[in-house]
Amino acid sequence: MMKYLYLAIFFFAIALTTNAQTTTVEKSIFGVQTGFFGLYVNNEARLTNSIALRSEIGLDAGLWGSDFNDIYGFLLTPVLTLEPRWYYNLNKRVDKGRRTSNNSGNFVSIKTSYHPDWFTITNAEDINFIGDFTIIPTWGIRRHIGNHFNYETGIGVGYGRYLTNRDGYEYYGDKNVVAVNLHLRIGYTF
């Protein structure tokens, strides 16, 4: 799993040293996005011509169910994310006459997320949410429709760690896990 993280860091190092990029990512863009599981507010700030730092705060959603006790439910919990993104095909898109506005392009990123145990919105009683921290190398695409609307998809596999509750609740299980990022979102850029 760590080899994927090293590979992503390698690609970012190449992007930082490459000066051939003439098309650049936007200086700063602000937007909102939603998908199957959540609602997010984000900002992408330019670090180099091809790298943007995405910061995001939102609510991740989860669903569960059990036929054994007929318990079904949902939850919403806060998530904080920092994600450096390398948009690696901006010049190719310009050469083909395609848009690059609002960072429309393919990207490789290292998505770092933290789910704090601040609050949980749920339809079930006595939910013990255990916070977690994840680092997931991700490949994705971002495209814009018109001037303001966008869609985005991404996939990645990385590392996750559960954080035990400070109130004395003990977690029984593996604290280190394989984390998956599979998202499909639509949004609006201001």
Rank of each mutant, 00 (worst) to 15 (best):
4 Y>L: 11
5 L>P: 00
6 Y>S: 13
7 L>N: 09
8 A>E: 02
8 A>K: 02
9 I>P: 04
11 F>S: 09
11 F>K: 03
11 F>D: 03
11 F>H: 06
12 F>H: 06
12 F>Y: 07
13 A>M: 10
14 I>P: 01
14 I>T: 11
15 A>I: 09
15 A>V: 10
16 L>A: 13
17 T>R: 14
17 T>A: 08
19 N>H: 15
19 N>K: 15
19 N>E: 13
20 A>M: 12
20 A>F: 11
21 Q>G: 12
21 Q>K: 13
21 Q>F: 13
21 Q>L: 08
22 T>G: 11
23 T>F: 05
24 T>K: 13
26 E>M: 10
28 S>H: 13
29 I>P: 05
29 I>L: 12
30 F>V: 05
32 V>M: 15
33 Q>G: 14
33 Q>W: 03
34 T>G: 05
35 G>M: 01
35 G>F: 02
37 F>W: 12
37 F>I: 10
37 F>T: 05
39 L>K: 09
40 Y>C: 08
40 Y>G: 08
41 V>N: 11
41 V>P: 12
42 N>C: 11
44 E>K: 15
44 E>L: 13
45 A>K: 09
45 A>G: 04
46 R>A: 07
47 L>M: 13
48 T>Q: 14
48 T>E: 08
49 N>Q: 15
49 N>H: 15
50 S>K: 08
50 S>N: 15
52 A>Y: 00
53 L>A: 02
53 L>Q: 01
53 L>E: 00
54 R>H: 02
55 S>L: 07
56 E>D: 06
57 I>H: 06
57 I>W: 07
58 G>I: 00
58 G>N: 03
59 L>Q: 04
61 A>H: 14
62 G>D: 07
63 L>K: 11
63 L>W: 06
64 W>Y: 14
65 G>A: 05
65 G>P: 09
65 G>H: 10
67 D>A: 12
67 D>G: 11
68 F>P: 07
68 F>I: 15
69 N>F: 11
71 I>R: 09
71 I>G: 07
71 I>V: 09
72 Y>N: 03
75 L>S: 06
77 T>M: 03
77 T>P: 07
77 T>D: 01
77 T>Y: 05
78 P>V: 08
78 P>T: 04
80 L>W: 00
80 L>D: 03
81 T>Q: 04
81 T>V: 09
81 T>R: 07
81 T>C: 08
82 L>C: 01
83 E>G: 00
83 E>Q: 02
83 E>V: 00
84 P>L: 00
85 R>N: 00
85 R>M: 00
85 R>D: 00
86 W>T: 06
86 W>L: 11
86 W>E: 09
88 Y>T: 03
88 Y>M: 00
88 Y>F: 08
89 N>M: 02
89 N>V: 02
90 L>V: 11
91 N>Q: 04
91 N>R: 01
91 N>I: 02
94 V>R: 10
94 V>P: 00
94 V>D: 03
95 D>Q: 14
95 D>M: 15
96 K>L: 14
96 K>N: 06
96 K>V: 01
97 G>D: 06
98 R>L: 10
98 R>A: 05
99 R>S: 14
100 T>I: 14
100 T>F: 04
100 T>Y: 11
100 T>G: 13
101 S>I: 04
101 S>W: 06
104 S>D: 06
104 S>V: 01
